[in-house]
């Protein structure tokens, strides 16, 4: 089964990004496919490579990048929401791409399930 995921909140501030990530890991462990993870609202802040958490904390951004590298998961950041918040190609972490909101609607159409994580 193909899962689409929507992440509406930034890293660290809310648990939404952690919950979405752990859900994605479980989706893959169950042998399902992730059609796309779409980052919207403050969720776009999951994609900045300028993030530097303390050594003893999880690196939420790097964790998403690794999910893309290891499993080819499509990580899409909404362009309008990103530009509002200072996220651009030059500070984008590996594995993320910036695209339009149509990618979210398309994920709703093409995935079998769409799960929203937010505040």
């Amino acid at each position: 089964m193909k899962f689409g995921i929507l992440v509406n909140e930034g890293p660290y501030q809310h648990q939404a990004s952690d919950s979405a990530y752990l859900f994605c890991k479980a989706v893959l462990a169950k042998g399902h496919e992730i059609h796309r993870v779409f980052f919207y609202h403050d969720g776009v802040n999951n994609s900045t490579r300028l993030t530097e958490p303390p050594q003893d904390d999880r690196n939420i951004v790097a964790r998403w990048s690794k999910l893309a590298a290891d499993h080819g998961v499509d990580l899409v950041v909404c362009v309008a929401a990103a530009l509002r918040r200072g996220i651009k190609d030059e500070n984008l972490a590996p594995g993320f791409r910036i695209s339009g909101l149509g990618q979210l609607v398309e994920s709703g159409i093409q995935a079998d399930r769409l799960v929203v994580f937010g505040d």
Binding site: N8, Y40, H41, A80, A81, G100, L101, G102, L104, V105, E106, G108, I109
Partner: peptide
């Protein structure tokens, strides 16, 4: 949220759903 939700709604209209 309300504003950005409305932006998705407008985009979704282009997909004939």
């Amino acid at each position: 949220y309300a504003l950005e939700s409305l932006e998705v709604v407008l985009i979704s209209a282009a997909f004939d759903q």
